[in-house]
Design a protein around this nucleic acid. Structure first.
Ligand SMILES: [Mn+2]
Ligand SMILES: [Mn+2]
Ligand SMILES: [Zn+2]
Ligand SMILES: [Zn+2]
Lengths: 136, 136
DNA sequence: AAAACTTTGCAACCTGATTGCATAAACTTT
DNA sequence: AAAGTTTATGCAATCAGGTTGCAAAGTTTT
C-alpha cells in the first residue's frame, strides 16, 4: 500500500483498493500507453474483467485517458494531474510501427481546424504512425 | 454489368467480377464511408467473407481506403481517381456522434507536424468527432 | 453483528474480423 | 472442345478484444 499511489487515486475520488493500486502502478511505471491485455499480462492471477472495470473507473474519473491507435486494442495512459480530459488536454499519439508502442505526445496538441460550415468539433483522435527513436 | 464500373475496376487492375461490381456500386453511391457489415446489409444473399475479401482486394489495389473511426468497425470509402494512398492523399475523417456517419474530408489534408527528434512520420489517422450538418 | 453497498472472480456472451476448405467459375493450354 | 490451372465465392469455424450477469468476498454504515 503505497501512500503516494493511494493519494493519486483519492485525488480523483477513487477508492484505493489493492487492485486499483496495482493497476495504477503498472500504468505509472510505463512511458507508453498500455492495452487491457498488456496490463493483464503484468499480473499472474488477476481477472481481465476486473482490470477492465478498474480502467473504466479510472477513465470515468479522469485519471487515465484512452487511445484507439488502430491496432485493434485500445491503449490507456495516465493523465497529467491537472488534466480534465477536455479539448485543451487532447494531444497527438504516436504509434511505432516497428515496436508497436504507443506514446502520448503531450507536447503536441491537436491542431486547430477550420471545419466546413455546420460541422461542429467535439473531440478528436489523431494518431501518427512511424518509427520511434528506439527503433530508428 | 455496368461498363463504367467495369472500367473503374480495370483501371486499378481488378478483375471486374459481378460481386466486385456490386460492392463498388454500393460504395460509389454513398457519400459516407461504409463498414463491412453495412455493405453486407445492402445485399440479400452475399457472404460476409466474400465482401471482406473484395474490400481487401480493392484496398490492395488502391481503389478504396479505410478509416478506423473508433466505433469498432473499420469504414471504407472510394479513393479519388488520382489517389495513390500516399501522404498527399491523407485526409481528415469526420465522425458524426449523432448519426454515426463517417465522412471523408478530402479538402482537409492531415496537417504538417514537427515531430520530436528521431520520430519519423509514415502515416496518420486523424478522426474528428462532432455533429454533422444533417444532425445539427 | 446485521444490513447495505462495493469490488472482485468466473463463466458466458457479443461483435467484428479473419481463415480453412470445398465448390464453382474463369482462364489457359493442349 | 477437353483437360488442366488459376481465381473467386460460399459456408462454417475460429479468433480476439471487449463486455456482461451473477454470486462470492470484502467494506462501510446502521
Ligand atoms: Mn495520451
Ligand atoms: Mn477518406
Ligand atoms: Zn518503436
Ligand atoms: Zn450526423
Amino acid at each position: 500500500m503505497n501512500k503516494d499511489t493511494d493519494n493519486k487515486l483519492k485525488l480523483r475520488n477513487i477508492k484505493p483498493t489493492a487492485m486499483r493500486q496495482l493497476v495504477y502502478d503498472v500504468l505509472s511505471k510505463q512511458k507508453k500507453a498500455l492495452s487491457l491485455i498488456e496490463i493483464e499480462q503484468q499480473f499472474e492471477n488477476v481477472d481481465r474483467s476486473t482490470i477492465f472495470r478498474t480502467l473504466k473507473t479510472f477513465q470515468d474519473n479522469l485519471l487515465i485517458h484512452s487511445v484507439d491507435d488502430g491496432t485493434g486494442s485500445v491503449k490507456y495512459a495516465l493523465c497529467d494531474e491537472d488534466c480534465t480530459c477536455s479539448l485543451n488536454d487532447l494531444h497527438i499519439h504516436f504509434l511505432c510501427t516497428k515496436c508497436g508502442q504507443t506514446h502520448c505526445m503531450k507536447s503536441m496538441p491537436i491542431p486547430n481546424l477550420d471545419l466546413p460550415k455546420d460541422f461542429s468539433f467535439e473531440n478528436a483522435n489523431f494518431v501518427v504512425k512511424g518509427t520511434c527513436p528506439n527503433c530508428k
